[in-house]
Structure formats: structure tokens, C-alpha cells
Design a protein around this nucleic acid. Structure first.
Lengths: 105, 105
DNA sequence: TACCACTAGATAGTATCACTAAGTAGCGCG
DNA sequence: CGCGCTACTTAGTGATACTATCTAGTGGTA
């Protein structure tokens, strides 16, 4: 991936994934393919799984185990109250930053 | 500063400063106050100076020494060819990312 | 059976970047 | 002389995305 994009994604990817989970609780593998659909195709799987562990440890999501027809059991992540609060902050921070950047040009 | 914003700035601040320098070559202290004007008020001085060293080492800017009426001599940074290329990439990366994010909502 | 492809997740180590905190240094003013 | 402003430097920290590799289960196929 382009190095610039890698750095820009910092602090953003977490919000993006959380946003996805707030629409529909699901598991890591599904998130990865969802990201690819949304144009974040170059993101490494390892990055996503690490991120999921992180938001779990921060207490932003609840986790449930679910069996899979094909493959190891899944971990289903769903955004909880704290996660929704975080998500709200994320969007407002993003909006403010976006505005300031656009005003530069 | 809010932790979310700190992370979001990664990879962006560099482009912002480079953009400022492309409009007018100037020195670190001036950049800091320019950033404050533009709404990036919470950015620590140390951060800016470290960033300037970085882009200098990357060869994105040329540096000239200039005396100051009041205080130690200044280092005047000006964007060179490589820096302009980097800046172009920065804006295109930013534009693409911004679009993808906005499309999520 | 042996192998491969796909699903699903974990882990160890690295690089980058913004941060805090503290310092150096020159100048003018009361 | 001490204070405030200008101007830059440095050491150390924390967060995050990266690469690369690993474990594991299921089904298909030569």
C-alpha cells in the first residue's frame, strides 16, 4: 500500500470498522471482505484482526462465539453503548478535521 | 488534545505543513502560529519541529539559514521538486480517502 | 489417502508518527 | 538582572498499521 495512505488510515480505520459493526454485528473475516468492497482493498487481514482485539480490549464491542459451516468458529463483534459513544466522537472529530483540511486549499 | 484527533492527524499533518510551505517558504516558529490560525491550535511545538526535520531528511524541502531580529537564527524551509510531487500525491490520496469515508455514512 | 483452496483467527516483530517534557540560545524591556 | 518573547533541539513514550508466519476446520479432487 502507498505509505501515505498507511499513515492517513491511522485513527480512521478503527472508526470505519466500528461504523461497519454498528450497522451489522459480524465477524472479522466478513469485515475484511466488506472493507474490500468499500475500497479499502489493500488492508492486510492481520491489521483487521489486531484492530478487533484492540477495540474489544477497550470495551467498545461485545463478543460472542458462533460456529461456522466451513472453518473455525467465528467471533461475532457487536458495538455496545461505549462503542456508540466512541463512534459519535469519531464522526465529529472527522468532520471537524475534514473541514479544516478543505479550508486550506 | 483528544486522542482520536492525535491519531487522525498522522500522515495528514505532514501534508498540511508542506502545503503551507508551498504557498510561502518560511520557518518553524511561523508555521506553528500559522497552524494555530488554521484551527490546529493544539499541536505541540515539538511536534512541528520534529516534522520539519523529518521532511528535510526525506529531501522534500530545501533549507536556508536566516538571521532574526529577535532571537536565534531561523531555518527557512522551501518545498523543492520532490516535495511538490509528494504534495500532489498527498492531495490525491486525501481526496480518495475522504470520498471513501463519506460514502460510508 | 494426500493435497489444495477457502474460511477464520492469532501472534511476533517493525516502522512511522504525534506527544510530553525539558532544554539551549538570542534579544529587548523594565 | 530577570522576564518574556522568539526560535529551535532533544530524549523518551504510546498508538497504530504493517509484514510475515502460524494454527485450525471444512470440502473438493487427483
Amino acid at each position: 500500500m502507498a505509505k501515505q495512505e498507511t499513515e492517513m488510515l491511522k485513527g480512521i480505520l478503527e472508526g470505519v470498522v466500528l461504523h461497519a459493526l454498528s450497522n451489522e454485528s459480524t465477524h472479522g473475516y466478513e469485515i475484511v471482505s466488506w472493507l474490500r468492497e468499500k475500497g479499502f482493498g489493500d488492508i492486510a487481514e492481520g491489521t483487521v484482526y489486531a484492530l478487533l482485539v484492540r477495540i474489544e480490549q477497550k470495551g467498545l464491542v461485545d463478543v460472542a462465539k458462533a460456529p461456522s459451516e466451513k472453518g473455525p468458529s467465528r467471533k461475532i463483534y457487536s458495538v455496545n453503548q461505549k462503542g456508540n459513544q466512541y463512534l459519535e466522537d469519531f464522526w465529529s472529530t472527522w468532520g471537524a478535521l475534514r473541514l479544516r483540511i478543505e479550508n486550506l486549499k
